[in-house]
Amino acid sequence: MKHWKKILIAIILLSILTGIGYAYYIWNKPARNVANERAIKITATALYDSFAHDEQAANASFLNKAIEVTGIVNNIKKNQAGETVVYLQSSDIVFGVNCTFKQPPKAINKGSTITFKGICTGYLSDVILNEGILIK
């Protein structure tokens, strides 16, 4: 019986140490830099339409990947974290592509055409792109 207790304690300790090691690795993992990544180039309308028509296929193609999207600025706001969020027009009157900037961009005007590069994190009525930079 004592032999099984020792084995059980060793397994528990090994599991705890593995968990601590994994947590340390995740915590210290370097941040993703979208500027250095090769991006999928697409228009805001085409990106939005791909998610609106077949979300599963669009997730397979774009989710967690660097996307370089070009579109017309529909709106500019700040989110709760103080980051600049630009909404690009799509084929839908209400929804489009939501682009959150990593650093505040230089002057962007409503109605202008921009190219934004960011990480696609999904679709929630808008296509969501984060950690972005302004290309032009």
Rank of each mutant, 00 (worst) to 15 (best):
G71Q: 11
Y24F: 11
A107G: 09
K2Q: 13
N79R: 10
L124S: 09
A31V: 14
T115Y: 03
I76P: 00
N130Y: 02
D49S: 06
D54N: 12
V69L: 08
G21Q: 09
I9E: 08
E131P: 01
I12W: 07
F95K: 13
K136I: 04
D54W: 10
Y22L: 07
Y87H: 05
I42V: 06
W4R: 14
G122T: 11
Y48C: 00
S50I: 08
N64T: 09
N36K: 15
G19M: 05
A23L: 11
I133E: 03
D126N: 14
I42C: 00
I119W: 02
H3Q: 15
A57E: 07
N28C: 12
G19Q: 09
T70R: 06
L63T: 03
Y87F: 14
I26T: 01
K78W: 03
K29Y: 15
I12P: 03
I7W: 09
K136M: 07
A66W: 07
V73F: 08
V34K: 05
K110C: 07
V73N: 06
G82C: 10
Q56H: 12
V34F: 02
I128N: 05
I72A: 12
E55T: 10
N64C: 03
D126P: 05
A10E: 01
G19Y: 12
T45G: 08
G19T: 06
S50E: 15
I11F: 14
L13M: 04
G132R: 04
V86H: 06
A39Q: 04
I16T: 02
K77H: 06
Y24K: 08
Y48V: 03
D92H: 11
T100G: 02
Y87N: 02
K65D: 10
V86M: 02
G111N: 14
C120T: 03
L88H: 04
A31F: 15
D54A: 03
H3D: 15
L14K: 04
N109H: 11
Q56N: 14
I108C: 00
P105F: 01
G122F: 05
K29L: 12
E83H: 13
K78A: 08
P105V: 02
E37V: 01
I119D: 00
F51E: 00
L13E: 05
T43C: 11
A58I: 08
T18R: 09
K29F: 13
K102V: 10
K77Y: 07
K110S: 09
T113S: 11
I11A: 14
P30K: 15
F116R: 05
I7V: 10
N130W: 03
I16V: 15
N64R: 05
I128S: 10
A10T: 12
H53R: 13
A10W: 06
G19P: 05
V69F: 04
P105K: 00
I20A: 00
S125R: 13
Q80P: 02
E68C: 00
Y22G: 06
L129F: 04
K110I: 06
Y24C: 02
E68Y: 00
N64E: 02
N130C: 07
